[in-house]
Every structure is written in C-alpha cells, then in structure tokens.
Write a protein that binds this DNA or RNA. Structure first.
Lengths: 184, 184
DNA sequence: GTCTATACAAGGATAGAC
DNA sequence: GTCTATCCTTGTATAGAC
C-alpha cells in the first residue's frame, strides 16, 4: 500500500472511531506513518483527505449491501441476509455516524456521500419490498418506501442502542424483531 | 436563570448541536454569557459541566417518555403517542448522539447517564408490550424485549436517516411504518 | 462570584530544504 | 515525494486581583 492509500485508510479508521471533529491531521499522520509534508503533498488539507475517506466508505457500504440484495432467493431472504449480516455493532456505522458530525453536515462536499448513500439504500430496499408485495410474498398493504425507511432506521438505531448499552446483542434483537414483524 | 443554570443549559444546547468533542469551554462561555473565571468557579472543568448537562438531558428524555407511557388509553395508543410525539427530527436525539462521542463513551461518569437512559427506555417499552400481549391487544407471539429494542432503534435510526437525507419526513415514515407492522 | 492575565499543548497549515 | 522548521489560532486550565 502506498502512502496515499495508507493516508486514506487511516483516515477512514479514525473517522469511524472518533468522527471528523475528533480526528486531527497529526493523528492521521501517526496512524498512517506518513509525515507532515507527505500528507499535505497528497491532499490539500483535512477536508480534502476526509472527502476521499468518506467517499470510499460510502461506496464500500453500498457495494456490500448490493451484494446481499442480489443474492439468489426470495425477497425476504435477501433482506434477511442484509439485516443479519455480521457486523461489529459496537463500532457503529462508519457512514451513519458522520450524520452527527457538525463539520461534515455543514460542508456540502463532505455531506453529499452520506446523503447519497442513505437515499440509495432506502430506495433499493423499497424496490425489493415492492417486488415482494407484487409477488405475494409480503402483505399487499405495506408501503414500500415507508417500510424501507423503517428497516434502515432499525439498523442505524440498532448501532446506537448497542453502543449506548455496551451490548451487541440488542442490535440482533432489534433487527430480528423487525424481520419477524415483516414476515407475519 | 442564574449563571450556573445558564452554563448548564448552554452546554446542553452545544452538546446537542456539536457533541462533546466539538464543544469548547470558550463556546460555552460565549453562549451562556458567563466569563472564564465564572465557569471555572461553578464547575471543575469541561467534563464536570458536561456531566451536569448530560444528566439533565437524560432525565428530561425519561420524564417526557414516561409522560407518554402513562397516559390513559390502550398499550398501542400509548406507544403510538410516544412514537408520534412531535420532535425536531433534523436535530437528532440529544442523548443518542452522545453515543458517537468517543470522549463521552471513554469516560464512565459521562457514559453512565446515556447507558441508563436506554436501558430504562427499552425496559419500560418491554413492560408495555408484555401488558399488551397479556391483554390480547398484541400478537401472542411477540417477544417484548426484542420488540422494544426494535421500536427504540426505529426512533434513534429515524433521527439518523432524517439528518442524512435532510428530511424530517423519513422519521415519520419509519415510525409510522413500525407502528403499522406492530398493529397487524 | 466574576474579571483579567497568563500558560502551555494541540489543531491546522505553509515554506523551503533535500 | 518527504522532512524539518515555523506560524498563528484555539482548547483548556490556573492564578490572583477585585
């Protein structure tokens, strides 16, 4: 991995662990093993580097989700695969957590990948739910868009709850329960 | 409101808007109108003042929820009151957001009110759900604890989604959808 | 109780040598 | 491309006068 790459990956980790406000250039340099001048040679500053890191995390999140969504199986099975995929619930969502970062939300460039990711995710889930409703797998009365919002919220809120209580178990309780309610 | 009180309230606002890491003593002084020496006279430092602010926000959140839970009406009505209560979804949850603050989570004193609030909230919802299951309002097959986790997660995740997409509407979609799934 | 002065580390970045 | 030196601001706190 070259220096530029190490800078991006280290920034991704730090943004995940400490957020944008809590991550200093110095911390990035230390974690990546790059020097002061090296970092400012590859990137214009903290926001520029953060944009690269956030964009990559956003793409990563989408491609993982899409892999679950396109697996063979029924709609409910595919949604179940997504909801029950192994996650380190106590670490939280690397993209969702940026939502609490005032300096990220205040900068349209940094904010955009976050916005796009969640718009895409709920849209994609709504498509699946509409498909399940059409083929009779799901109740004819469900609202695909609203249900997609609820499922996405359960995942994001599951992270919050897990971190708050210090227990990864509540994440599983929440997502399993959402699935059970959906299946009925 | 005396100085001590203004310091606490200003800190509550800033923690809500910018989190612990993003809130400086200077910003607190400016917002509260208190001087440097005044702040350090009333509190030992940033963590001490933050503890007062966090504790109050936690109590506030619990008492609002309890007011909804003890209203007259069926279990589903009371849960519905709680879920549909007016909130500024774009501001997020003042307690839930602290979950993303590394320095809060790392300090057991600051962390405790957050932990207790969510343990209490899920426990209380589980009691209500068990009551509804017992009196036939809810499906006999539901798991109160797991469903409580899902409902709490929908609210917390609804905030995340609303902030991510910039639309308070998704919060309502998510909570309404959760209620609809519960009612069936 | 509140104010001002002072202190010192950390955040964030630029300049120029190599 | 990377290193070191340097710069100015902000964060966080203490000391002592009023």
């Amino acid at each position: 991995m070259d220096t530029r790459e190490r800078l991006i990956e280290s920034t991704r980790e730090l943004l995940w662990e400490r957020g944008y406000v809590g991550t200093s250039p110095k911390a990035i340099q230390e974690r990546s093993g790059a020097g002061q001048g090296s970092m400012y040679h590859h990137f214009h500053g903290k926001p520029d580097l953060a944009l690269a890191a956030i964009s990559r995390s956003a793409e990563d999140m989408r491609s993982r989700a899409e892999a679950d969504f396109t697996r063979p199986g029924t709609v409910v099975e595919r949604i179940s695969t997504y909801l029950r995929r192994e996650r380190d619930a106590l670490k939280g969502c690397p993209v969702g957590r940026l939502t609490q970062d005032p300096d990220v939300m205040a900068d349209p460039r940094l904010r955009r990948p976050v916005e796009e990711t969640f718009a895409w995710l709920t849209g994609r889930l709504a498509e699946l739910l509409a498909e399940g409703r059409a083929n009779g797998e799901l109740d004819a009365g469900i609202d695909p868009a609203a249900t997609a919002a609820a499922l996405t919220a359960v995942v994001q809120g599951g992270y919050v709850l897990a971190r708050a209580t210090g227990s990864a178990n509540v994440f599983t309780q929440a997502t399993d329960s959402a699935l059970a309610l959906l299946r009925r």
